[in-house]
Design a protein around this nucleic acid. Structure first.
Lengths: 205, 205
DNA sequence: CCGGCTATATATAATGT
DNA sequence: TACATTATATATAGCCG
């Protein structure tokens, strides 16, 4: 898909790998969005780079919900094939990363051994962390509030709809009562009125 | 990407949508596999078709593990494992967690610190601030998720209630229709037709 | 409904800035 | 370093059997 064909195996050059990751990540997330819209399906994509950074897409905005549905699927299949699941996830699962971290740390210490550059860099690092924390928190809050807002609106709509349906039932029942009491149908409720009421109800769709 | 450009919106024709789903699903899973191999990252893709069928890809064999890592990213339940995204441009963006980053920071400070404790104290303060932030965020996230969950349940309940009311209306209408037909009012402006239309309309509720 | 075909739209590897 | 461009590889929409 580029100037030349590339084999599908780990890209050796670190820089190329990172660039490819950025491009393909963008592409993958775009495709996920497209299929979710075009085909009206729920899609969740989670990407965790080897440096531990998270990227995600989910078609509705609650990835958790999709994952719960996934879990229920898995549970259902588990019942068929009674496999014993060994909990892979332990507090030691990040051991390799820790090793890398120590290596990186040592390297940085060697490089900045003589002057006070390390401290300056680390203070800068602190600032970046703070900013990142604020940004991430803000964004998540925003998303959750949006979601909650949407649900509140939905609830309100449904409440109104319910009320109209109840009114509808009440009036129908009342009309029927009147009908049954009269021997001639002279005062049969004009059907167009009922129609009107129901159209009103339909406005809430 | 085909004979003609297609807008990214729900495909109306059911058959076309299903065909597109099959093709694009295959493509999406292939791309997920490619990026995971080429760029050496963990990728999880979950697709749930609107017919409830599940399709998935995960780079390592345990999607559950990736999802757990995702959970730990999002929920940040444990203070020490709170994983926060670091800005892409940072030269320190090689660390898995904010906690690890801060640990590293502290270690580097200790090992390079010849002149006073001010910076160390400040870093410690940063740490405390961050711990507080993480705790508050975690609790807020929890509360919001709880709230959203409750609203979802409320919505479901209302939907069911609505359905009952609709059924109620339908049966009332039907009964009245039967009554009217048995009373032999041939010249009355055929109410049953109107009723029929109304039932039809109500199906869309 | 499925799988293959082909023209075309997209994605992206390499390159340029 | 990152972003824009370009040439090419891929993905896929509409068809056909």
């Amino acid at each position: 898909m580029g100037r030349r064909k590339v084999e599908i195996k780990r890209i050796q050059d670190k820089n190329c790998r990172q660039v490819a990751f950025c491009k393909r990540r963008k592409g993958l997330l775009k495709k996920a969005k497209e299929i979710s819209v075009l085909c009206d399906v729920d899609v969740a994509v989670v990407i965790i780079s080897n440096r531990g950074r998270l990227h995600e897409f989910s078609s509705n905005n609650s990835l958790t919900e999709i994952l719960q549905r996934y879990e229920s699927h898995v549970e259902a299949e588990k019942e068929n094939s009674a496999e014993i699941q060994v909990p892979e996830h332990s507090k030691y699962s990040g051991f390799t990363t820790m090793g890398e971290l120590l290596q990186t740390t040592e390297r940085q210490l060697e490089e900045t051994n003589d002057d006070g550059l390390a401290v300056t860099d680390l203070i800068h690092l602190e600032n970046e962390l703070q900013t990142a924390l604020i940004q991430v928190r803000s964004r998540k809050t925003h998303l959750l509030l949006e979601s909650a807002k949407g649900l509140h609106e939905k609830e309100k709509l449904l409440q109104e709809e319910k009320k109209h349906l109840e009114d509808n039932i009440a009036s129908i029942k009342k009309n029927r009562e009147v009908n049954e009491m009269s021997t001639d149908f002279a005062d049969f409720p004009a059907p167009h009125i009922i129609c009107g009421q129901q159209r009103m109800t339909l406005n809430f769709l």
